[in-house]
Design a protein around this nucleic acid. Sequence first.
DNA 1: CTGGACATACCGACCGGTCGGTATCTATGC
DNA 2: GCATAGATACCGACCGGTCGGTATGTCCAG
Lengths: 206, 206
Amino acid sequence: MTTGSTAQRRVPRGEARRRILDVALDVIRQQGFAATSVDDLCRAAGVTKGAFFHHFESKEALGVAAAEHWATVTGAMFEQAEYHRAPTALERVLGYVDLRLAMVRGTPSDYSCVAGTMVQEVFLTHPELRDACGEAIFEHAQTLESDLAEALAAAGDPPGVDAAGLGRFMMTVVHGAFVTSKAANDPTVAVESLVHLRRYLTLLLG
Amino acid sequence: MTTGSTAQRRVPRGEARRRILDVALDVIRQQGFAATSVDDLCRAAGVTKGAFFHHFESKEALGVAAAEHWATVTGAMFEQAEYHRAPTALERVLGYVDLRLAMVRGTPSDYSCVAGTMVQEVFLTHPELRDACGEAIFEHAQTLESDLAEALAAAGDPPGVDAAGLGRFMMTVVHGAFVTSKAANDPTVAVESLVHLRRYLTLLLG
DNA sequence: CTGGACATACCGACCGGTCGGTATCTATGC
DNA sequence: GCATAGATACCGACCGGTCGGTATGTCCAG
């Protein structure tokens, strides 16, 4: 039909998918998953709806891909962090918390977690998306496990505590800090919670 | 125009508002705020849209009222709980955690928090709703403050810890436990996090 | 010249919200 | 004790816009 000039390409060919995923991380953290429309994403990515549905078969599929993309991006980021180079396992664990403390100085849209935001909304209604979020979160928790196991051993393996569960608890505090600091509209609340987590780890493992 | 038989009243006159608020607590915890339509609420409450917008000037206003209703309902529930009758402040604090532990055995739609669910989605886009959620959460935290202050004093007031901040940390863990247990699709994760919180409080205050 | 990577136009369902109307209370004067 | 008038509670058709998704066409790399 119309046609004519055609194809104002807004984004270089081949980059649409990545652009959509990148902006999704930001937009979803700002607005939540349900409140984010496909058009919102396309606008922000500079891409048309055709491109969107070419790469993702549904909005839920985009969510799943975004959770995986999130895991990749943050995984790479944490993998490079300095805290891995600390000499003792306890210092590495505390270093992780300190890194979280440093991150939390900005605004929730920047420091919070896409997976944690999405899973609250969709855990019942979109099981596949829920599982993708779960994997992103607990896969990250697992990166702490070996240091935690070592630190626990060094502390004489306190009874009733295991490395995997302690890692999950750390995720609980981190994600809880996102919620309460959003509610308080004040990142200080996140800071203070992470300091409590740090104190707990010190008491338990020090 | 139409007229005719008129007014199949589905709900006794005068109960519409309360019915809407009651179902909102459930539906929003199941689907999130943005994914819950006004029609969803009306259907669940057995009420028409006219009734809805008679009582609430917008969907956001309903959200605010729901947060306040949540604070009232849960406030009354926690106020009656047994843990207030424990002899020492520390036992009362731990009793609160034990109550949370007991609650967390069900399903997230039942044990999670409306305010925490909503605030994740709307903290940036709906400031009034965010504030209402914040008030619900931190007002609840305050109910722990006097016991925490007393327990801290009994423990010799450990440096760097204050009752208000510790109360907020407890909210952080509770809400974090909602997130991670949803993500894991397993309430066990919430249980284990609350056990860690209990251990922290014991180490700090015992 | 083919197949993946888009663009554009479009669809029906559903969204939050409005509005004119009705049913039922309450207050008041007689 | 009863008519009446206003306020409140509610009904449900309707509105413009937006939603997720589709159909079909064009571009371009290999």
